[in-house]
Design a protein around this nucleic acid. Structure first.
Length: 272
DNA sequence: ATGACGGATCTAATCCGA
């Protein structure tokens, strides 16, 4: 019986925050780190930062300026037969297989300001993306049941009441509107997946992974949202929950580091 | 919803985040 520790972090520019990533890796030592918003092309990805830290394997899906995801691993990455959705939008999904576990790293579109598909094409794109996730998970359900799979990343939706600082005040705010939250839960259920963070920390306890830069004192105002997720397939459920709550870490302290990302890293140690 | 930040890019002013 082995273990796999996986971290997910929206880093908001991997080049700018290389020192923070190095510090996190040396402190937490996950087997795998999934990054979102690397904000660079694959050719500009700071590979040395990771190889120097002992992470010699990577999958990078980048583009110029914004978005972009990467998977960094201590252990060799086996090729994955990527689900169709992974090929759909290059800088939003990266897939890898490490120690027999499939890892799908997502960066779901933010969706703009206005939660109206007729007025805001970004919101329409977001809902469409989530619907494609649902269709893909439904199609892959058998495979997800057999193959240990973890789906992580910045899903840019806080699905449950206690995933936001004020359910009532955020119902019309992009990230917590009913079409988004219902769509995301629909995708989770379509694959028979488990929301590991919520399983380990049930409602009504608040969970946040993101705090806006716009609040002068993020900790004092504490207007957070849970936008970052760790989902596991049926084949991995038992192992993902085996360590209990202490196997899950949400590093709020990283929000106070110098030049912080607005998201904090989430780490889960799983039995495999 | 509030408050008015922060990163990248055609290094200025605009797009993007959410």
């Amino acid at each position: 019986m082995g273990a796999l520790t996986i971290s997910t972090w929206n880093i908001n520019s991997v080049r700018l925050r290389a020192p923070q990533v190095s510090r996190f890796l040396s402190e937490t030592k996950p087997d795998v780190l999934c990054l979102q918003e690397i904000k660079c092309q694959a050719a500009e990805f700071p590979e040395r930062v990771f190889t120097d830290a002992g992470y010699k394997h990577s999958v990078v899906r980048g583009q110029k300026g914004y978005h972009g995801v990467a998977i960094i691993s201590k252990h060799p990455i086996e090729p994955v037969d990527e689900p169709g959705h992974c090929r759909h939008e290059e800088a939003r999904v990266a897939c890898a297989k490490v120690k027999g576990v499939e890892i799908h790293n997502y960066y779901v579109p933010a969706g703009g300001d206005e939660p109206d598909i007729d007025l805001n094409p970004k919101f329409a794109h977001k809902l469409d993306f989530v619907e494609r996730m649902r269709a893909q998970f439904a199609k892959d359900k058998k495979r997800l049941t057999k193959t240990p799979t973890v789906i992580v990343g910045d899903l840019n939706i806080a699905p449950y009441e206690h995933d936001v600082w004020s359910h009532k005040q955020l119902l019309k705010v992009v990230s917590h509107t009913p079409p988004e939250t219902e769509g995301l839960i629909g995708a989770l259920n379509a694959g028979g997946l488990t929301d590991a963070m919520r399983e380990l920390i049930p409602e009504p306890e608040k969970i946040y992974t993101w705090w806006s830069y716009r609040n002068r004192d993020w900790r004092k105002s504490n207007r957070g949202r849970r936008l970052d997720h760790v989902w596991v397939s049926p084949a991995l459920r038992e192992g993902a929950l085996a360590g209990g709550r202490k196997a899950l870490s949400i590093r709020e302290d990283c929000r106070d580091w110098e030049k912080p990302s607005d998201h904090v890293p989430v780490t889960l140690k799983m039995k495999i």
